[in-house]
Computed example of a mutant assay.
Amino acid sequence: MSINPMAYEAQFFGFTPQTCMLRVYIAFQDYLFEMMLVVERVILKKLDGLPNTKIAPSQIRKSTEKFLLFMKERFDHLFSKMEAMLLQLVLSIPTNILLPEDKAHEQYLYSKEQFQGLQSEVDQLQQQYKAEVSAGQALRAELEEQKMVQMELEKTLQWFDGLEKVCREHRTSNFKESFAFLTQLSKKLQDVLKEIDEKNKRLQKKE
């Protein structure tokens, strides 16, 4: 059997030509063995009908095996010629023929250096994409953190608003200086809240 891998032919046929030839060889060989058994049974049947025959069945079996060996040698010799012809003329693809799925290789030819350059460019793009994904995740995490801070500040402002309302309703003079301080602090917190809100908007635009 041929030892040429014939990978391109296997791509086209869906099986290796050597596998095809091996199956054909086994099929013919099995048929040859079956025919020899049939011939042996016919001979033994004919001998049973002959009176006073001195030929034993074991002699028939030896003769059958000898003839089978002779036929197998002849068959192997003929099959090797048939295999060479089929592998060269029928089951082979000429070197100047391209399969339809490989036409792109003929249209876009690249040297080893060009391919390495393209591979390097692909690696750089992959790294850039990973960096952008990481940056996006960091921005989203920061945005969530800013939202949490914003919620806490809003709660604090609501508390100051409630305190101011209570002071107005009860007109407590003892809280005059404290109230002025709290008012200033409330304005500062409002400024911080506004700054955080603007920063959140900028982060959302970057995403």
Rank of each mutant, 00 (worst) to 15 (best):
Q114V: 04
D123T: 14
Y129M: 12
S120H: 14
G117N: 15
G117A: 11
L153F: 09
L118F: 13
E164G: 04
E144S: 13
V149P: 02
E121Q: 11
A135G: 00
L163T: 06
E154P: 02
D123V: 08
L118C: 02
V133N: 02
S120T: 08
Q137F: 00
V133P: 01
R140K: 11
F115Y: 05
E145S: 15
E145D: 12
K155E: 00
G136L: 05
Q126E: 15
E164T: 02
Q127M: 10
M148S: 14
Q128R: 14
Y129S: 13
Q126C: 15
W159C: 13
K130M: 14
E145A: 12
G162F: 04
L118G: 06
Q119I: 05
R140I: 02
Q150H: 10
G136K: 06
Q158D: 12
L139W: 05
E145G: 13
Q126H: 15
Q119W: 01
M151N: 09
L153W: 08
Q126R: 15
E154C: 05
D161H: 10
S134V: 05
E154T: 13
E152Q: 14
D123Q: 15
Q146W: 02
E164M: 05
G117K: 10
G162S: 12
L157S: 03
L157R: 00
A131N: 06
R140A: 00
E142K: 13
E152T: 10
D161I: 07
E121R: 10
R140H: 04
R140N: 01
Q119T: 09
V122G: 07
S120C: 11
L125W: 07
A138F: 03
V133A: 09
G162D: 09
G162K: 09
F160D: 11
L118W: 02
F115P: 03
M148T: 14
K130Y: 11
Q114N: 04
R140E: 01
W159M: 11
R140C: 01
E113T: 15
